[in-house]
Design a protein around this nucleic acid. Structure first.
Length: 444
RNA sequence: CGGGGCGUGGCGCAGCCUGGUAGCGCGACGGUUUUGGGUACCGUAGGUCGUGAGUUCGAAUCUCGCCGCCCCGACCA
């Protein structure tokens, strides 16, 4: 993408409404624009990141055998009357009336809808287990939205719903989700710790939430340092192996890790003092097992092998996709701007032309651009007629991991410069034939 | 929802106390500048000062209502 043809509305100054760093950087780098309190438009750069996160989330769900669907944002209130949540949910639920005077609502979550889908089409244990998920915009009319997309009213979220014939199988679904989530966060380059959670308004008695440690987090968390050393790495997961999956989950949930809601001072004090840690955390996901709460009230029964009818066992599992954009920035930035992890960066590299208008340099830049695009990279080419300082500052701000710097001085000697955003280190690289050197460096 | 603050061109702000129909910086746009770390010069466009009512000869400035936005708290993915 040639920058002069793109839409990247950079702000030089901090908008006064943004207090925390991720919110500021998202506004300044032209990722989002506020539409009203807690509601945002996603501009090109922000949308690319949002979609990349979404893609990773989807891939990990599919890898575990979970099935994508898409449910609507506007839901009929009748289903919520059935489950009993129409009154329970309170003012957080945005209610609207259609032209016929029928009460509708903008979904804050989808248990009712998915249960309705399930009960009309599935009625036998033979069709189980099944996990349906979707990634859709949700709306919760927060009293006080804040922190930009991290606590908006409208938010993009993956929510998955598991259906199983018995509790054993449902717990396996729960465990499976925990691993898919851990994998997802690892791919995003985030350290997210699973913590024993309160079940909140959705109800149930089995729940973990995932927290990214960051000073601006909204929750106080307490944990055993040993939990931060755990990671899945590249190990292969066989999701059908119930025992193996349970063992992995056990390893990750064994060490003490709780938010202030479930914190138990006595248990915490049993951890050796040098491993006893407390910090702030951003919640980026939560998983629940809640049994038959909805299947019971909504009549989602299945026929068991012995012919008995019984309410299906359910769980729900959510990852805040739009919130993750903010969380990622909270975890990856410096005083100059954002530093994107390679997995979600809006562009793989940017070509900075130090002397726009110079025929040689322009030719070299376009050639590099073509070569790198052909090699499969997503490249931004800063071809603006701007001072170099402006270009460097802009690219540091938007946080593209690699900056390919091309100027007449180095070019005359057959070199260009490659700068890594994260550490600022620049390397002089021979232009060579084509862009082999670059491709190698970018893939490293 | 309780407490506090703010609403003046795209962004950041001044002017308001001591009423006399708007100003600065950045940005945008058009030129010149060909630049190795937030750009130099010239020029142009853009605001009925959130909104409604009131006071007054006259309101961005004073009074009241309403709306919006931000911060702290309670709440929340």
């Amino acid at each position: 993408m040639y920058l002069t043809k793109y839409f990247l509305p950079i702000l030089k100054e901090n908008p006064s409404e943004a207090q925390i760093i991720s919110h500021r950087l998202m506004l300044r780098s032209g990722m989002i624009k506020q539409s009203s309190a807690g509601i945002y438009s996603w501009l090109p750069l922000g949308l690319k990141v949002l979609k990349k996160i979404e893609q990773i989330v989807v891939e990990e769900q599919i890898a575990a055998g979970h099935i994508p669907i898409l449910m609507p944002t506007i839901q009929p209130s009748e289903l919520w009357k059935e489950s009993g949540r129409l009154d329970d949910y309170g003012k957080e639920m945005l209610r609207v009336e259609d032209r016929h005077g029928r009460l509708m609502l903008y979904g804050p979550t989808n248990e009712e809808l998915v249960t309705d889908i399930f009960r009309t089409h599935i009625s036998s244990y033979k069709d189980l287990p099944k996990t349906l998920f979707h990634i859709q915009w949700k709306f919760r009319d927060e009293v006080r939205p804040r922190f930009g997309v991290m606590r908006g009213r409208e938010f993009f979220m993956k929510d998955g719903y598991s259906f199983d014939m018995d509790k054993d199988s449902a717990i396996h679904a729960y465990n499976r989700h925990m691993i898919t989530y851990l994998r997802t966060y690892e791919r995003l380059g985030l350290k997210a710790l699973p913590m024993k959670a309160d079940t909140g308004p959705i109800g149930g008695d089995y729940s973990h939430e995932f927290l990214v440690l960051a000073e601006t987090g909204e929750s106080q968390v307490f944990y055993d340092k040993s939990v931060t050393d755990l990671s899945l790495g590249n190990r292969h997961i066989d999701y059908s192996d119930q025992q193996d999956v349970a063992d992995i989950v056990k390893k990750f949930t064994q060490p003490y890790a709780r938010t202030d809601e479930t914190h138990d001072e006595n248990l915490f004090n049993k951890i050796p003092i040098e491993r006893r840690l407390s910090a702030r955390g951003i919640e980026v996901g939560q998983i629940f097992y809640f049994g038959t709460k909805y299947s019971n009230s909504m009549g989602a029964d299945i026929v068991m092998p012995n012919g008995d009818r019984t309410p299906v066992e359910m769980g729900s599992h959510g990852i805040g996709v739009s919130r993750l954009v903010g969380a990622l920035i909270e975890a990856n930035h410096d005083e100059l701007g954002i530093i994107w992890p390679a997995s979600v960066t809006p562009f793989d590299a940017v070509i900075i032309n130090l002397k726009q208008g110079d025929e040689q340099v322009e030719r070299a830049c376009s050639q590099l651009y073509e070569d790198l695009i052909l090699s499969g990279f997503d490249i931004l080419y800063d071809d603006r007629h701007e001072r170099v300082g402006v270009k460097f500052a802009t690219m540091d701000l938007i946080g593209i991991p690699w900056q390919i710097i091309v100027g007449p001085r180095d070019l005359a000697e057959g070199f260009l410069e490659l700068k890594f955003r994260a550490d600022g280190i620049r390397r002089r690289i021979p232009l060579g034939e084509g862009s082999d050197h670059l491709v190698k460096a970018l893939r490293a």
